[in-house]
Design a protein around this nucleic acid. Structure first.
Lengths: 208, 208
DNA sequence: CTCCGAATTGAACGACGTTCACGAGATTTA
DNA sequence: TAAATCTCGTGAACGTCGTTCAATTCGGAG
């Protein structure tokens, strides 16, 4: 029966995919994107070099899968920060959760932004969707803070705030020992979110 | 005379450095960091492959020099936006100037943040200094807006605001066609800076 | 047991950054 | 002027990378 054979083959391929993904995740978590080498991967996963290309199109696809799982962990960390009484506290908690995650898993987190598709290809939809879901976590607190704005406008605002927080974290962690001591970075982030929350509260007061 | 020899040699080396830098700048501006190949560089500069390494330690140093000149052009663009009546207009103009520059010279601008020193080495001081001078351009408007804050605190705030604006621009340009149409990005940036400026004005009003 | 199709293998390929023994060309010395 | 010396650009060669594909192995069907 050729069906049985194909099925068994597909299952084996899935096993290999999982094994490679697990090894790749570990590698990126420990050594960053630059440490993800095809030969090391094959050795650690106990397969031949060429076998990688039976499970993935290329290392780009594997990297995107690794980044997807990082996005999922990041999403969970953000969710854990959402149980806050006031919406501005929630925004603050989200920002700190983002910074915490970036510190805790710095190489994996960096990989999210360092990776560039070869040939300037566009990222596949399943990845772009997962990326965009991150911004969505800001919408609930924003809805409580700005009930009179329409949802699309809030979605844009969510994206903007997320980007701003990301910028502070990214540039803050970039040059660790040089200009921004760790505790100062927390303070910077808090400053930014408080400023924005104050501006939003003001707008909300006017808007009602 | 060995001095004459050495001097002539040094001058030739400088000429080569300049020629390579010019070609590298063009290459990064057109094809981005990924398009900077040693062999192409040598061909375009009309020298041998190995000659690159008589003018620079390695491609990392050359890249840093290219990025330095990008930082200088960026700085000039920001300076041109500083002639604004009110400090909050100045902050807004700086943010738009940053976005404009990133759009106008996107590959060069991206190179500023994509480049990673091999072996995880720290960036040299002359480069870190130039980088930090960027933040300084925010301090004049901030001083007018918050005259009662002490300068170090304003410097930290300048860094934070710059980082926030950078985050919005960076994530906004990342996925061009996907989620953020160009005009929306301008609006997002304006929203952010207005929110922050409103928060700062509020603080200033309380603070005096 | 033999056969056959599919899956796995790893040597080979081309491109990359970097190095270094060589030789050309200029300068000093006899 | 000829020989000796030194300097510096040269490009073939090296090690490493991602990727490919002819050869091989393997497992189930007859």
């Amino acid at each position: 029966m050729s069906e049985t054979r194909t099925e068994a083959g597909a299952q084996r391929r899935l096993k290999l995919r999982e094994r490679l993904l697990e090894v790749a995740r570990q590698s990126v978590a420990e050594r960053g994107l630059a440490g993800l080498k095809a030969r090391d991967l094959a050795a650690e996963a106990g397969c031949a070099l060429g076998a990688i290309y039976t499970a993935f199109d290329d290392l780009d696809e594997l990297t995107l899968r690794v980044n997807l799982s990082t996005l999922e962990r990041l999403g969970q960390s953000l969710d854990a920060a959402l149980n806050q009484a006031s919406p501005s506290d929630a925004l603050l908690a989200l920002a700190h959760a983002y910074l915490d995650f970036a510190r805790r898993e710095e190489p994996s987190w960096r990989a999210l932004f360092e990776h560039r598709l070869s040939g300037g290809a566009r990222v596949p939809d399943w990845y772009a969707d997962a990326r965009n879901q991150l911004f969505g976590r800001l919408e609930a607190p924003l809805a409580r803070l700005l009930p009179h704005r329409d949802p699309p406008s809030r979605a844009r605002l969510a994206r903007t705030l997320f980007s701003a927080v990301h910028g502070v974290v990214a540039l803050g962690l970039e040059e660790k020992l040089e200009a921004t001591p760790p505790e100062a970075l927390d303070a910077q982030l808090e400053t930014l979110v408080r400023l924005i929350a104050a501006g939003l509260a003001q707008e909300a007061a006017r808007g009602v």
